[in-house]
């Protein structure tokens, strides 16, 4: 079984803060990390390989520094990794991203299973997985929390829904997006770290993956960001002050009135 896992480099979300004074994003010392959901996708790929045999390839589309996460992936047990990187990709929305990733995956050979994270924490769109499946003409299941079995090219998985979960049977080749509940990712192993040290991560350009320039980057993206602004505040609060007794009295009044109508 050949498994491809799509991983993305994102700013470590817990470090990104809005500076309350200047209302700007303060990113001082913000690290770039593997999108947290993608760690789980990677781990699931490695586990499937260990159970059913095969290989795991991770790919990422992004700037040259994204090689760092691919290298980290190697240290966590994946077999192969490559980057797709080109200035022509800048400004890609999800439609252009799925085009680029699909071209890269097709070019890399036949695939039985593509794994993605449920969403990337920078954009939180959760659109790349399903869109990529459409590009590859593969069936897919999103928000998979468990893989129960693979038999005769049919996989049985559990999909999280808003009101519970569905058990779904899907024919391979297929694409899954995974949630954090699916597994606990492993740490890099010593062997992995050694392999990562010598592993030279190839980088492919738009031309290398036979991409149609019109479908790439900003030009290939139907959505345009026209405005970016900080979330607004209400700012007209009234503070309740006084002794503990007074505060408790007023608060009890406000809570009962709002909950039961005055």
């Amino acid at each position: 079984m050949r498994i491809v896992v799509c991983i993305k480099q994102v700013p470590d979300a817990k470090d990104v803060r809005l500076d309350p004074v200047t209302n700007t994003l303060s990113r001082e010392g913000v690290k770039s990390v593997i999108n947290p959901y993608d760690r789980h996708a990677m781990e699931e790929g490695v586990r499937l390989k260990e159970q059913y045999g095969g290989t795991v390839t991770v790919i990422s589309m992004g700037p040259p520094q994204a090689k760092a996460i691919l290298s980290e992936a190697i240290s966590c047990g994946v077999d192969d990794a490559f980057l797709v990187s080109d200035r022509a990709f800048a400004g890609s929305d999800t439609l252009a991203t799925t085009y680029t990733l699909a071209q890269a995956i097709k070019k890399s050979g036949a695939v039985d299973l593509v794994l993605c994270g449920k969403q990337a924490t920078d954009g939180d769109t959760a659109q790349v997985g399903p869109g990529l499946a459409a590009r590859l003409d593969m069936p897919y299941v999103t928000c998979v929390k468990k893989i129960n079995a693979i038999k005769d090219q049919v996989m049985r998985v559990e999909r999280m829904m808003d009101d519970g979960y569905d058990e779904v049977e899907i024919e391979l080749p297929a694409l899954l997006t995974v949630v954090k509940e699916i597994n606990v990712p492993r740490f890099p192993s010593l062997r992995g770290l050694r392999k990562a040290k010598t592993f030279d991560i190839p980088s492919y350009s738009a031309a290398d993956i036979d991409a149609d320039p019109a479908q790439l980057g900003l030009g290939g993206s139907p959505t345009w960001v026209v405005k970016v602004f900080p979330p607004e505040c209400k700012g007209e609060r009234s503070m309740i002050e006084g002794s503990l007794e007074e505060i408790a009295d007023k608060l009890a009044g406000i809570l009962s009135d709002s909950a039961y109508g005055a």
């Binding site: 990104v16 803060r17 994003l25 954009g123 139907p222 345009w224 405005k227 900080p230 979330p231």
Partner: peptide, 14 residues
């Protein structure tokens, strides 16, 4: 919202 809600973005599809 984008970036975990740190910024808001307005998007069109013209």
């Amino acid at each position: 919202p984008a970036f975990g809600g740190n910024i808001m973005a307005t998007i069109i599809c013209p």
